[in-house]
Design a protein around this nucleic acid. Structure first.
Lengths: 149, 149
DNA sequence: CCTTATCTTTACGTTCACGTCAAGTTCACA
DNA sequence: TGTGAACTTGACGTGAACGTAAAGATAAGG
């Protein structure tokens, strides 16, 4: 029931964007092309793909990177998904497993570095604004209690 | 000595941008036009204006807003500067002072809201990434100590 | 089966935030 | 007073990230 296939308009509504954007993201490889769709036929999506899209939009907003940079960041995530899939197979020798996991770790760390940097910068700004706010409020209080002599 | 007037090229270098960008920002009213400059004459700047530019660029990066939105945000800051100037004059009655200060407070709160929102969102993302990182590292550790039976 | 909303591709248009080029001007310095 | 570097305005160009319009195809409901 809830896994009824969604069409591009539904996905757009659910994610708070437009069909054009979704097609564009697919076009530049930011979203995977629905595989094996005879040209002309409607695109069909699942709820998981709505989530994926929301995540893309979230990262775009928060990280403020170009779609091209975002693509590399997400291809990393893509890679991690592949890794997880491959790791589920029993017949991967532990040397290879270690390789894959370390690769994942690298991708994560790259993202974390980006996020942490922005987070601390924002924290600084927030602190400055809070300070300024305090100062203004103190001035207001001093107006209420005019002469403290 | 250090307050020798700067030219647009110097300002650009000091702020890490280009003359074109500075002129553009002036054009759209994001930076104040050097007042009373006979058309054709070189623009002259002070160190304070370099700081202003750096702040503009910083906010642009951190808040990820359009230059138009940034302009309104900064006009608020502009207003606060005016307020500070007016408050230095002694002959402002306290009713008016209160008004001005409250206005300032409103502007600051608007910025703070924006900043705080982004900050918490970024914090969430950071937390998620950190969690994922932990999971991957645990998997790696389990590879080192294979059978815990 | 027919209608109609929604989709398809193709292609050109648009906005933002500048880059780049041209032709002339101003400024610091020898 | 000349000369070269940096500046001026004006205009057109550009890449990113979509919007929009056209002409036709598809899909879901009655």
């Amino acid at each position: 029931m809830s896994d009824a296939p969604l069409r591009i308009g539904d996905v757009a509504r659910l994610a708070g964007t437009t069909p054009r954007t979704i097609r564009y993201y697919e076009e530049i490889g930011l979203l995977p092309e629905t595989p094996a769709r005879p040209s002309g036929q409607h695109r069909l999506y699942t709820a998981a793909e709505v989530e994926r899209l929301r995540e893309v939009m979230r990262l775009k907003n928060l990280l403020g990177v170009s779609l091209e940079e975002l693509k590399t960041l997400l291809s990393a995530e893509e890679a991690r998904a592949t890794v997880r899939a491959r790791l589920r197979e029993e017949d991967v020798d532990s040397t290879r497993r270690r390789e894959l996991l370390n690769e994942s770790l690298g991708h994560i760390d790259r993202q974390l570095e980006l996020v942490e940097h922005r987070a601390t910068e924002l924290a600084k700004l927030q602190e400055e604004l809070t300070q300024t706010r305090r100062r203004v409020r103190r001035l207001l209080r001093e107006l209420d209690v005019p002469a403290h002599a």
